[in-house]
Amino acid sequence: MAWLADYPREKVKWYPTVDLSKCTRCGICMNCGKQVFTWTTKGPEVTNPTACTIGCTTCSNLCEGNAITFPSKLELRELYEKERLWAKVTKQMKRDGFLEFKEI
Rank of each mutant, 00 (worst) to 15 (best):
T40D: 10
E103G: 03
T17F: 12
M30W: 08
L79V: 00
C23N: 12
V18H: 06
K94A: 07
T90R: 13
S72C: 04
R84T: 01
Y15T: 01
W39Y: 13
P8T: 00
S21M: 07
T50D: 05
C52P: 11
E83Y: 04
L20V: 08
T58N: 09
P49V: 00
K13E: 05
R84V: 00
G33H: 04
E45Y: 09
R77A: 15
T53M: 09
C32N: 04
G43P: 12
G97K: 10
P8W: 02
T53P: 01
K94C: 05
L99E: 06
P71N: 07
I68D: 07
Q92F: 01
C23A: 12
N61Y: 09
Y80N: 00
T47V: 13
I28H: 08
A87S: 14
T58V: 10
K73A: 06
N66W: 03
W86T: 04
E45H: 08
N61G: 09
D96R: 05
E100L: 15
K42N: 14
Y7M: 08
E10I: 01
P44F: 08
K94L: 13
A5P: 05
V18Q: 05
R77E: 15
T38S: 11
I104S: 10
I28E: 13
D19E: 10
I54E: 07
E64W: 03
T90F: 06
A67W: 13
Q35T: 03
L76Q: 06
R95N: 14
A67R: 12
Q92W: 03
D19T: 09
T50N: 13
V89P: 03
Q92A: 11
E64T: 09
D6R: 02
K22L: 14
T90K: 11
R77I: 08
A51P: 03
A5L: 05
P8Q: 03
L85F: 03
E45P: 01
R77M: 10
Y7W: 13
V12N: 05
V12I: 15
C23Y: 12
K11L: 03
I104M: 09
G97C: 10
V46R: 07
A51S: 14
K73R: 15
S60M: 15
R95W: 08
L76T: 11
V12P: 05
N31I: 01
Y15K: 03
I104T: 07
F101E: 15
W39R: 13
L76E: 09
G33A: 04
K102I: 15
A87I: 02
N61S: 08
S21V: 02
K34S: 05
T57H: 09
F98L: 15
E81K: 07
T58M: 12
A2T: 00
T58P: 02
R9H: 00
N48Y: 09
L74I: 15
P8D: 01
K42H: 10
T17E: 14
T57M: 14
T57V: 13
C29P: 04
L74G: 13
M1Y: 04
K73G: 09
E78D: 15
K91C: 00
V36W: 08
S60T: 06
T53N: 07
M30F: 14
K88C: 02
E83D: 06
W86P: 01
C23W: 09
C26Y: 11
L79P: 00
I54G: 04
F98M: 13
K73P: 04
N31Y: 10
Y15A: 02
L62P: 02
